[in-house]
Simulated assay, not measured.
Amino acid sequence: MTRKLGVAVGILALAAGGALGMAANASAAESGVQATYFVLYEDDNYGGRHANFSSSDVELNNKYWSGSTSAFAQNGGSSMENNTGSYVGLWDVGTSCSGASYTAKPNSKDSDFSNNNFDNKASCVKFL
């Protein structure tokens, strides 16, 4: 009887631990600015303010940096993380998405746009 009770308690403990582990993993995967977005950062090395994109935004002169109500993301991007399965194009002329451009591959990162001659130029974000 004691052995059956011990086995039952052990099984319950494993099940509870597994459920807790799954919940923690799901929460970690769904949280943070990187979840499933294209993220544009104001500074090199993913620093400063950021702006999340889950779809195209062809005019960044009306897109605020996250947490800001006065600073727009237009011409302010210096690094990016593309955590989507899509190519994402950036252009320096908003609305028409023309001029100098930069293309981010799916699931990629770039810690410094300077080496691509695109630092502080993004005015249009378009999922391709």
Rank of each mutant, 00 (worst) to 15 (best):
120 N>D: 11
126 K>H: 01
53 F>M: 14
17 G>R: 07
15 A>I: 15
10 G>T: 09
77 G>E: 02
1 M>C: 12
74 Q>V: 10
104 A>G: 00
12 L>N: 08
39 V>I: 06
56 S>H: 04
39 V>C: 06
1 M>H: 05
49 R>T: 01
27 S>A: 10
60 L>F: 00
66 S>M: 09
35 A>L: 12
9 V>Y: 14
58 V>D: 07
56 S>V: 09
101 S>H: 15
121 K>W: 11
115 N>A: 11
91 W>P: 00
29 A>Y: 15
101 S>W: 15
66 S>C: 09
41 Y>T: 03
22 M>S: 13
6 G>Y: 12
61 N>L: 06
96 S>Y: 07
94 G>C: 04
83 N>M: 12
122 A>M: 04
68 S>D: 10
72 F>I: 10
55 S>C: 06
122 A>T: 10
105 K>E: 03
94 G>W: 00
77 G>Q: 01
33 V>P: 10
100 A>Y: 12
22 M>Y: 15
16 A>Q: 12
30 E>F: 08
101 S>P: 03
128 L>P: 00
24 A>D: 12
9 V>A: 14
1 M>G: 12
20 L>A: 14
41 Y>D: 02
35 A>C: 11
72 F>Y: 15
90 L>T: 00
120 N>L: 06
39 V>Y: 07
2 T>P: 10
71 A>I: 10
124 C>E: 03
50 H>S: 09
50 H>L: 06
113 F>W: 03
50 H>V: 04
76 G>V: 02
17 G>P: 05
83 N>I: 08
57 D>R: 08
35 A>M: 13
127 F>C: 03
107 N>F: 11
62 N>S: 15
112 D>C: 04
89 G>C: 07
115 N>F: 11
22 M>K: 12
35 A>Q: 13
43 D>N: 05
107 N>R: 11
20 L>T: 14
79 S>D: 00
54 S>A: 11
35 A>G: 09
84 T>R: 05
118 F>M: 02
19 A>V: 14
81 E>H: 06
32 G>L: 13
19 A>Y: 15
78 S>K: 00
